[in-house]
Amino acid sequence: MIRILSILVGLFFSAALTWSVGLGAYSYVTEPPKETVEEAFHLHPHEPAGGFSFNGLFGKFDNQQLQRGFKVYSEVCANCHALKLVAFRDLKAIGYNDDEVKAIAAKYQIPEYDPTTGEVKSHAGLAKDRFPPVVYAGSGHPPDLSLVTKARHGGAEYVYSLLTGYAEQPAELLKRFPEAKTPDGLYYNPYFANLNIAMPEPLASDDQVTYSDGTKATKAQMAADVAAFLTWTAEPKLDKRKQTGWAVLGFLLFATTLAYMAYRNIWAGKKGH
């Protein structure tokens, strides 16, 4: 009885699915899906030349690079993008000392709501404060950058590729998809999901930032540095995580080898194992 019932239920689902397949196949044949402009021209993010120091099982942050990236962030990105999950005190982890952290913090005004007067006042930043919100008046919604490298497919490579990927719309694109011309106020960037981004090219020329360590501030260098910095803001514990990981794996290999030997020992008298 139960098997007859089950076969009937099975046939019902199979029939419903076959119906779906059939209609789907029919519309696939009569109206084959057209390739979209995103499918044709979207590019996958890639690493900068030389790669990122923090990639790979043994990868580590390069504090010099993170400090350069912080400079790019604070002089370029910070005009529109906030970094609200990062506290000034966190900057100690990328090589600034207490006094430098205090000096950096003091450059920012931290808004503070006073519940007795109802006013919003502000005080100069302290090490314990987080980066303040950024007021943005233009069009579009510049996202907070604290987690951006973890919140996008491709992570740091995506940020790097996006920053260096601004270009003219290819002639071939306009030929094949004339309706896909980049609208006014948007900018063509093949690394952006829908190819047209509201952000104007932020790193438009070399030497937009002057590095204190003498590194030549090419566009690619600035993009790589800020991508590295934003990787640190998203995953500040990356170095510690990998160090801990190696210690844990080393111990586990040792303990598992012992466990295997003990297992063989105990089973030594039993055939079949």
């Binding site: 111990f251 586990l252 040792f254 303990a255 012992l258 466990a259 030997m261 003990a262 020992n265 105990i266 030594a268």
Partner: peptide, 16 residues
């Protein structure tokens, strides 16, 4: 020797 390995394995688990 076998005892030693078993004890070592249990000790390693304990330390971990």
């Amino acid at each position: 020797r076998r005892d030693f390995i078993n004890i070592a394995a249990v000790s390693a688990a304990g330390v971990g």
